[in-house]
């Protein structure tokens, strides 16, 4: 499974920049980023090229950071491919906790990142349906 770095950030001016500065200082490249917002604080979710290094660097600077496994699914960047993926999840009765996507190459390839509670055999099912699951290659694409 691919790795996602989760960081607890207070909703205060400059906090995201502090995270960005630590990543920059450690020469870590950000593939994508999303925020789960809770008003006074949020959970920052990062896909980076060196997740372990990022996690350690952030902890070193006092941030609460944790690495989580996620499913990173390669999709064709065209109408209908997202629907096909969602149908697969529905048919397998697997509920999604959190998800976000980003385009790697316009009109060609996109990645859909999914957090599930009980992965079960979703990986095999997705592969049977012809989806490619990204591991390390997610960071370098």
């Amino acid at each position: 499974m691919a790795k996602e770095v989760n960081i607890f950030v207070e909703n205060r001016l400059g906090r995201l920049q502090s995270v960005a500065a630590i990543l920059a200082d450690n020469e870590i490249n950000v593939r994508t980023m999303t925020l789960q917002d809770r008003g006074e604080f949020g959970l920052m979710k990062l896909i980076v090229d060196k997740p372990e290094k990022a996690d350690l660097a952030l902890k070193d600077k006092g941030f609460a950071s944790a690495i989580k496994d996620i499913l990173a699914i390669l999709l064709e960047d065209k109408p209908g491919s997202f629907n096909k993926l969602m149908l697969t999840f529905e048919n397998s009765k697997i509920n999604i906790l959190d998800a976000y996507g980003f385009v790697i190459e316009s009109n060609k390839q996109a990645v859909f990142c999914v957090e599930v509670k009980e992965p079960g055999n979703i990986k095999q099912i997705l592969q049977q349906e012809g989806f490619k699951i990204l591991e390390e290659e997610l960071y370098e694409f």
Binding site: Q36, L43, D98
Partner: peptide, 15 residues
């Protein structure tokens, strides 16, 4: 303050 060592990265746990 939340305790770094007990942080799992899960928003539901924070809630």
């Amino acid at each position: 303050e939340i305790y770094s060592k007990m942080f799992s990265g899960d928003i539901n746990e924070l809630d």
